[in-house]
Design a protein around this nucleic acid. Structure first.
Lengths: 168, 168, 168, 168
DNA sequence: TATGAATGAGCCTTCATTCAT
DNA sequence: CATGAATGAAGGCTCATTCAT
């Protein structure tokens, strides 16, 4: 808290005027980052382009934001499964972030017989998020670099993992 | 530390008879869990069965251990990218756990033209680990349950994500 | 620290609001005592009286302060050769305390042929300080008492130890 | 204690078989060092040579031992005025070390009218010890070096500080 | 509202001492 | 006699939180 006070140029006392506790700050920050990431990932998402185009653009933007702004991603990762974030905030994050729209896009892809129908779209999204995240984490740990080529390959892999038709 | 002392029924002083510091305990625990998970995941791994059989068995066992023993997985996840674990321990974990053998299996799969050759096998493993992990995490968060059917579907998805030939 | 907190009627946390560490407190205390002792010893020092008068007055005041306020002297003695006191503080103490002016007075005494010239004035001061200190320490240990007469004798002895001319 | 056990190749338990407590060890060590220093300082002391010869030899040997074996001197200095050493041990140290014989020598010097008679020989010894000790301490602190010449000058100063007749 | 000094429980760690073997 | 594992009070320090101003 004292660090937050120092960095923000405010006294600790003032912080408690606006927030109930440290937990409240973390929750609010979580909300904020989810919203920001959502905006970035969903840029150009709500168009009438083909599903594949929109899906690939979203995942690419997710990768790019995570590389560009790793602290935010680490923060979300650290807390997304933690009881420190209130259930209410997590639920709001579903609709307020990229998860909800992405789920719907996957549901559409299934409905249009692009993706197999026997896996819950929610599970698919989570799966794909995990695979991209771990590829990026490996890169952050300096085990490899994330080239444009790799980004394309990763997203292709996601698509192929659940696609019904053979694709490049 | 006082919690560890209490839970293990020893005094805090006694802990320091066996470990240099809290950090040493965490590192040792990390080592132990990695070794245990490695053994569980690699059960029946070193056979002359087809690559696909061995790969699927390993991932299935990984999922089952992670469900059966979630604390261990959360622990590894929390620390695997943390500087709190000494580099030496991390390196030892690569060979002492399931990562090293799995990497080799993926390299074999590439060599035998089962998997595409343009993605580093190390990256593939990490990707697949991420996708399975996040599917399981979702389940732990009580968003869905991991049925035998889902396990099969998840592993299939992993295979398909990088497979060269069309498969079921 | 907890003792300091208790004696000073504040919480341990408050102490750390004003000092970085225990070491910082000890250093600050050292500085303070050196300054105080310096003031007491150097009362009436910077006059145009004869060297001997000023020297004897200073040593007498040193003895009197050390008797009146023994904790301070023990503290300085305990730490003056300890690495716990930062070099910077020690150096500042030389000029901020009585040592620097006393050294200069001894150098003057040598220049005026009152004292032998073959011993470094710095060594002389240290020698005399040691002899007075141990006489006082013996008294503190209740082995003898420090009468006005003894004080005079001690200071005479110091003078005679390095004086060039025979004196009473 | 554990350090003592390690350095001496004995278990901590065994130490408590021979000593009641850490305090007992420190007291015993104090006794031992006082005895050792006493032997070194009093080498060639009990002869029928002139008082001055014997006195100068003793002080010189004290300086040399303190330079050669500084840990012992620091130890004695640290504890000689501390309540941690039992009164009984301190008293025994008076007779068992160099203090007692030196006091007697000073008493003789007074009786033979070499030294002034108005200062308690015990005080004189303490004074001289203090002056030599602080000269050596200054040297240990790397402020100056103790040459053979300085040793002679220091001892001369001690003599002159209380001598009745003019001497070199 | 804003401040920042004050709080005190809790953190990890040390170490003289004990005691079952 | 010897061992060394076990003890637990005490050490210096941190930090989320409170409250008088």
């Amino acid at each position: 808290m004292s660090l937050i006070a120092k960095k923000s140029g405010v006294s600790t006392g003032s912080i408690y005027h606006y927030f109930d506790s440290k937990e409240a700050i973390i929750n609010e920050l979580y909300r904020g980052i989810v919203r920001y990431n959502g905006q970035r990932v969903l840029e150009g998402f709500f168009t009438d382009e083909p599903i594949r185009t929109r899906l690939e653009r979203a995942w690419e933007q997710l990768i790019r934001v995570s590389l560009e702004y790793p602290q935010g991603f680490q923060f979300i990762e650290q807390y997304s499964f933690s009881p420190y974030i209130r259930q209410e905030v997590k639920q709001e994050s579903y609709s307020g972030g990229w998860c909800g729209p992405m789920d719907k896009l996957y549901a559409d892809a299934i409905r249009e017989k692009l993706f197999r129908a026997d896996i819950d779209p929610h599970v698919m999204v989570q799966m794909h998020y995990g695979s991209l995240l771990y590829a990026v984490k490996g890169a952050m740990n300096r085990q490899w670099t994330v080239s444009d080529e790799l980004i394309e390959q990763l997203i292709q892999s996601c698509w192929n993992s659940v696609a019904l038709k053979e694709t490049g």
